[in-house]
Design a protein around this nucleic acid. Structure first.
Length: 724
RNA sequence: UGGGACGUAGGCUAAUGGUAUGCCCCAGGUUUUUGGUACCUGUCAUUGUAGGUUCGAAUCCUACCGUCCCAACCA
């Protein structure tokens, strides 16, 4: 590589610029705004901030940092009916915790009310605004709809003097709520509904948390927001896509006034799988006590994620990583979890905790004796230091780390097997003690005195390493295991008449009350993040943790490749697949290919370490939407030996295309045409090599049990009928 | 239904007329006193579809299809 190339590479930025940076670069190049970049983060104090806001915060503050500009924190407090000081405090705490500093640039829209009022007078005098006397219902009716243009209000041509008088009296409080309002005089025919004489001020005799009872008229968003930006000298006003239709209005208002003209730019809001992101819905979860509060660790709120143990750096990195574009989509929760693991892996000390303790007695270790092993707090970072691990005759190990009948590839403890206790020694299991019900209650083991520190004296290979605590020294703790709040990727997709709360994951929280942790953990401060070795990243609960009553929340589990191996083992407990098949057999049918059940839908949660992996319940099975389908076309798929491509009418606007691995049985596909079959209608469509498959057909063994056969139906049934 | 936007792999994302980038997911492997981490390898895209312009198109043009947003005195 030449020097030249080296230089070029060095100059190439690691991340490419996104479209907003491109706009700013162009503005700067054109000499706009005197080379200034000024952004703002303008939350309405009517709820807590969520991860979507975090994206916006990182964007706005990040841009200011990058361009040497400023970013204001501004509360858009124009609606006293829904706003509250509780939120004002919480929002500031969240932004600060995320790592951003607004310096002395904290502003409130309500500080501009007087100025806005003056500007409204300007519009009235110019004949661009008028006092409306129609009722809310009448205004709605006059507005028309998408297809029919609006009609002009009878008050639209009220003389300026009268408007001025009425508006002044509105302010003085001479009218009741809703009796009058101030409207912009724009265009009732506009195809953009926002331009059909939008309301600028409404009358609300309400107490405002900052202006008290000074005002009884409050500005609407469209009128207020551009003014707030203009007054603060914002250059680039960033907002989400749904405000795109408002931009002509944003611009129109500012054009009427002799003030600074900020530029509104929209970007796609962040959506995350397995959660909801609107304040309205989050509020519902809180109010109906479906979660413990705004800071419930399962909530996608910033404060919830904080309590969950996510770090500010992880959230910032995530915001960076999801990118910025104008196309909306749903970011995979797995990306967030990956980012959290990545950050916590680098920043977090390792400690040992046993969540489901199983008693172990080291028979050749003297009763009453103890010793201490020095163990590093981070295996790759000596600068983290070490701590002393007490060891004695009586220990606890994780119940999951022992199996009486070990499956293949099991590296952990089982009768006669030898494992390493992390940083301590090698032990071998000699005897299994069970209680009356047959449950394993204790293991009798011996340790190899020459293996102190954990190394095999003769270099023998010991593959399994378990975490452990000394029973005589360990401290009790409560541990909460969290899982995703919703059991489906998009909780907003519900059955007819359903509600997103129907999709809540009933197993999103599991509290373990009988955990044992090493003594070192009592020195932790609330909110300290640690890795419990081999289990996951945990945080000392910021509200409930005390040295004598320890409470930990699991931020995220470690990746668990054993769970994967076991899942794929034919002899292991049933995989998601097998479970589903078993359930299907009860109904006398067996799902046949194409895609053996959507992986992402039935994937067992890596979570709950104690849970038996991958079972599905009868409730899961009931989620299958089975429909009657009529095959309208069937053909072979060129290049695929097993597949048939079917068009199946299930009573929808168009037939579904379904790829089925049944070619071996139906060598003449045309014989299938006209047959009534059973279709899994709510299976996530799957893009296969040979085309999209939009469902799955049920099949079973033929009567003589020798071949596969599609389950067929007959009788007076129609495509789309539900199969009970 | 009128208007506005958006379509790149299973999910995000890059590309600025020069032959599809990176991350996540998934599958395998190496190292390992965490079945973690790190590292390596692999699967997956004729860029929504169909035409056109061009030596050359994800990029420009046309048409179609699909998805999202808008009919609060909410923001």
């Amino acid at each position: 590589m030449s020097d030249n190339e080296n230089k070029e590479n060095a100059a190439t930025p690691e991340t490419s610029t996104h479209f907003i940076e491109d706009i700013i670069d162009a503005d700067l190049a054109a000499g706009k705004n005197d080379g200034r970049v000024a952004t703002r983060f303008p939350p309405e104090p009517n709820g807590y901030l969520h991860i979507g806001h975090a994206k916006s915060i990182c964007l706005n503050f990040g841009l200011a940092q990058k361009y040497g500009g400023t970013c204001n924190l501004r509360f858009d407090d124009t609606n006293p009916a829904t706003e509250d000081v509780e939120y004002i405090d919480a929002i500031q705490e969240d932004v600060r915790w995320l790592g951003f500093d607004w310096g002395d640039r904290l502003y409130y829209a309500s500080d501009y009310f007087e100025q806005m009022y003056e500007y409204a007078l300007v519009l009235i005098r110019a004949g661009k605004a008028y006092v409306e006397a129609l009722s809310v219902e009448e205004i709605r009716e006059y507005r028309g709809n998408f297809t029919t243009p609006g009609r002009e209000s009878p008050w639209r041509d009220r003389p300026v003097a009268e408007n001025l008088d009425l508006f002044a009296r509105m302010r003085k409080g001479e009218f009741k709520d809703g009796e009058l309002c101030l409207r912009a005089r724009i265009d009732m025919q506009s195809p953009n509904m926002n331009l059909r004489d939008p309301v600028m001020y409404r009358i609300r005799h309400a107490h405002h948390h900052r202006t008290q009872d000074d005002w009884c008229i409050y500005p609407m968003y469209d009128w207020a927001h551009g003014l707030e930006d203009a007054i603060e000298g914002i250059t680039h006003s960033l907002c989400t896509l749904e405000f795109e239709n408002h931009r002509p209005l944003y611009d129109w208002f500012l054009e009427q006034l002799p003030i600074h003209r900020p530029q509104q730019i929209e970007f796609a809001r962040l959506n995350l799988s397995y959660t909801v992101m609107s304040k309205r819905r989050l509020l519902k979860l809180v109010e109906q006590q479906l979660v413990t509060g705004w800071d419930d660790p399962r909530m996608p709120t910033i404060t919830g994620m904080r309590r969950r143990g996510y770090s500010p750096a992880a959230l910032r990195r995530f915001a960076e990583r999801v990118g910025l574009a104008r196309r909306d989509g749903i970011v995979d929760m797995a990306l967030l979890e990956h980012t959290v693991r990545e950050d916590l892996n680098e920043t977090t000390p390792r400690v040992m905790a046993v969540l489901n303790p199983l008693k172990v007695t080291i028979e050749n270790y003297p009763e009453g004796e103890e010793e201490f092993f020095e163990a590093p707090l981070h295996p790759e970072k000596p600068e983290f230091g070490t701590r002393q691990l007490p060891f004695s005759r009586h220990l606890y190990i994780e119940r999951d780390d022992f199996r009486e009948d070990p499956p293949k590839k099991w590296h952990r403890l089982s009768p006669g097997a030898e494992i390493r206790l992390r940083y301590a020694c090698l032990i071998r299991c000699n005897e299994v003690i069970k209680d009356a019900s047959g449950e394993v209650v204790e293991l009798k083991c011996t340790f190899d005195p020459d293996s102190r520190g954990g190394n095999a004296p003769d270099g023998r290979r010991v593959r399994g390493t378990s975490h452990w605590v000394s029973a005589t020294h360990a401290l009790p703790a409560r541990v909460r295991l969290y899982d995703r709040l919703f059991r489906v990727e998009n909780p907003l997709k519900t059955e007819e008449g359903g509600d997103f709360v129907d999709n809540l994951n009933p197993q999103s929280l599991e509290e373990l009350r009988d955990c044992r942790v090493e003594p070192y953990l009592a020195t932790l401060a609330p909110e300290a993040r640690v890795q419990f070795e081999r289990l996951g990243y945990f945080v000392a609960d910021r509200h409930e943790f005390r040295p004598d009553d320890m409470v930990f929340n699991r931020a995220v589990s470690l990746r668990d490749s054993w769970a994967r191996i076991e899942r794929s083992q034919p002899t292991g407990p049933s995989s998601a697949n097998r479970g589903q098949r078993r359930a299907a057999e009860k109904q006398g049918a067996q799902p046949s290919a194409p895609a053996p059940a959507a992986k992402t839908e039935t994937k067992p949660q890596a979570a709950a370490p104690a849970a038996s992996p991958a079972e599905i319940t009868i409730d899961d099975f009931a989620r299958l939407d089975l429909r009657v389908g009529v095959v309208v076309a069937a053909s072979e798929v060129a290049g695929a030996k097993k597949l048939l491509q079917l068009q199946v009418d299930i009573g929808e606007a168009r037939p579904r295309q379904i790829m089925a691995g049944i070619r071996a049985r139906y060598d003449d596909p045309s014989q299938l045409v006209g047959k009534k079959v059973i279709v899994v209608a709510n299976l996530k469509p799957r893009q296969m090599k040979f085309g999209l498959s939009e469902g799955m057909l049920l099949a079973g063994a033929s009567e003589d049990g020798t071949r596969l056969e599609l389950a067929e139906l007959s009788g007076d049934i129609l495509p789309g009928d539900t199969v009970a």
